[in-house]
Amino acid sequence: MIKKFEKSLHGSESTPVNIVVAHALEAKALIPMLHLQPFQTTSRFVQYGNSNNLHLIVSGIGRAAMEAAITDLSQQQANEEGQIRAWLNIGIAGHSKAPLGSAWLGNKITCQVSGVSAYPPQLIAGIDSVAVITVDEPERTYPEDVAYEMEAFSFFEQATKYSTAELVQVFKIISDNLENPIEKLDFKNIPIWIRLLQEQIILLISKMSEIVREHNDSHRIPGVYRELCSRIHLTVNQKLQLKRLCLRYKALGLEADLESVISLAGSHSKQIISQLSAQIDRVGKQ
């Protein structure tokens, strides 16, 4: 099972997923598991990545740190081609009675301070889910049947500014409960629990990658667009028109015709756009 998922994860296919952890100990087990290498950047956040486009950032603890890390990483990865990435928060949480090392996806994330809830759409089958409450101070009494932690709400709120909610998920690993209070948490156990959850983590990343790849492929803008943008001056509005025209050619199976139409139109932006429009209106009409 793991091998199958690992194959998909480390094969030639892209894995456009950002993993965000609060603590370096959470990253510790993920780095070898996902074959990550230190990622050189001027950012103040420690980052790792691999050649398949998988990325990990260590945010630091708490809501503000999480927000800052996501903003930082999204600016670093910004592109204007409509390509998105999935975001996955992996981190520890407390629960009244759940066994240590057990793990869930968050299906409802409530900010304890504001009382506001967010609901990550549950597209990925095969992993159990639980409600999560994000607190500012560690919870010691666990009054509700939910996982308590410190970053998920900010993570979801912030990451959905850069991706779609279906591709923003939180995966919480139980590190403390009523029998094993947080004060007695042995930090050495965190990487061990994460390692034991390898199959679920890889399944999650593989499925998220699959969805994001499919999305990005359907939204891929023909290369001609980028070429033209670098070659001639286009206003913002012209860029939008050109992008839409390129996508229409692609949808109609006419991507190969783009270059010849453009070459016939010369190098004037207005002329190129009007030629592309006229041609597609002729061909696309049934």
């Binding site: 549950q122 597209l123 089958a125 959905t160 279906e166 969805i211 999305h215």
Partner: peptide
């Protein structure tokens, strides 16, 4: 920030 197309894969 929701996506109809993606949600169609597994509607709730």
């Amino acid at each position: 920030s929701q996506n109809f197309r993606l949600q169609k894969k597994a509607p709730a």
